[in-house]
Amino acid sequence: MNKLRDIWASLIGVLGEHPLLVRGFALFPVVMVSTSLKNAVAISLAFLIMTCIPVVVLSFFVEKIPGIFRTPVYVLFSIALYPFAAWCAGLFGTDMLASLGIYLPLICVNGILTDYAYKPDGSRKWWQTAFKVFCECFEFFVVICIISLVREALVYATVWGVPLPVRITVRSAGLPFAGLILLALLIGAFQYAKTMWQRLREKRAAKKGVK
């Protein structure tokens, strides 16, 4: 029961400190690659492989690696997994590697990974680290999928390649600035929902206090 409560508390903690929507980590794939839902799923899988595995494996030795060498070690481990990640991403289409371009190998220097490298938490158990980094990758997946869904519908009038009944297209939604503006709107909505949730909790707590 206590373990379940720990997991729930850490899940809420990770959600509140969303690495992408709050701290602005790993923004480039969300803006540059999110022109189709297939791209989003493929890069999320590659992101999971190139971020989760190095963070979890190196969490066993992180204390033994001197601080100045941690970032290169994490980055090197991540890029070593690139061929496998690229192969996995390639399962979503023959031209997937071309459409993901330079953004696929760039995952090895994403902010989430480098943050684990220079701010390691030795007190955390391996499964807690694994759970946290998995949640962060899942959040990345959710954000990139939302942005991709909107952009694919606007640019190509399709979703996962399936044509929509309405054939109106907005080509400029495929440009980087559209991704930036959509992401900013999503962050605004997330912050609003977070504030509302906090107020609701405060109200409930106040009601309980009165009773």
Binding site: V22, G24, L175, P176, F177, L185, Q191, Y192
Partner: peptide, 21 residues
């Protein structure tokens, strides 16, 4: 309040990016 911080900075970068287009 909802747009303070990262959201407003992304909008700002988006406008510059649009100008570069």
């Amino acid at each position: 309040d909802s747009f303070k911080g990262l959201a407003s900075m992304l909008l700002y970068a988006g406008i510059i990016s649009m100008a570069l287009c």
